[in-house]
Amino acid sequence: MRNPLFFLTGIGYGPAMTTGTMRLEAMKLDCQRGGREVFSGLNFTLEPGEALIVTGPNGSGKSSLLRLIAGLLTPVAGSLHWQGQAAKSVEGWPGHYLHYAGHLMALKPALTVLENVRFWAEFYGRGAKAKGACITLGLENLLDFPVRYLSEGQKRRTALARLAAVPLPLWLLDEPTSGLDRETTERLETLMDRHLKEGGMVIAATHLPINIPGSRALALGEQS
C-alpha cells in the first residue's frame, strides 16, 4: 500500500518500500562495548508512523543502539528484523531503508552547504531534491557558503537536510536537536511529524525534550 499523499507531497518510497508491511523488530538485543555490557535483552517493535524516543543517562547505550540498528555494530546476541526478515538479509539493507544521523555530521568544511547536502542526497537516492531540503531546514541564505564558516547549529541543520532530501522509511537520529535554536527545532519536529504521517519511522536518541505527538519512549537504564 503506497502512501496516499504521495502525489501531493512528491515524496514517497520506492517500490521495495511499501508502507503496509514495514515493521522493525528488535529481539533480545545484547550490546557490549569494550567487554562491558551496555544493555541486554532489549525488545521493541516499530510500525509505520511510529516514533521511538530513546532516553537514558550518558553511557546507557543510546548511540550504541542506533549504530547497532544501522548495522555499524554487531549485537553480541539477539536479532533485528525488518518486515519479519533478518535485517541483514534484506536486499539493499541498510542503504535503501534508513538514514543514520550520528553526532558526527559527515560534512566537508571545504565544500559549500549545497555541495555537502547534494553529495549525500545523491549518494542515497536518485534525483534527490537537495536544494528544497536545504530550504526546509532554513538554509536558503547559506547555500553557497563553505561549511567551514558555519556555526554548530547551522552545521547540524546541513547534516539533517539529507533526511528531507531523500525519502527513506527509517530515521535513526542521535541527538538531532543538540545545538539547534528553538525555531529550527520546531522545523525539525515538523519534518519528523510529516515523515511519520507519511508512514515513516523515527528512532531518536536525545537528552533534550522533543515534541513528537504520539511517540513512545524507550528508557535505557544505568548499567554501570
Binding site: 544501522a70 548495522g71 541498510p94 542503504g95 534508513l98 553526532h103 558526527l104 559527515a106
Partner: peptide, 9 residues
Amino acid sequence: DGALDLLVL
C-alpha cells in the same frame, strides 16, 4: 567526521 559511517551504510 563521520562520513565513513555514511559510506559504509
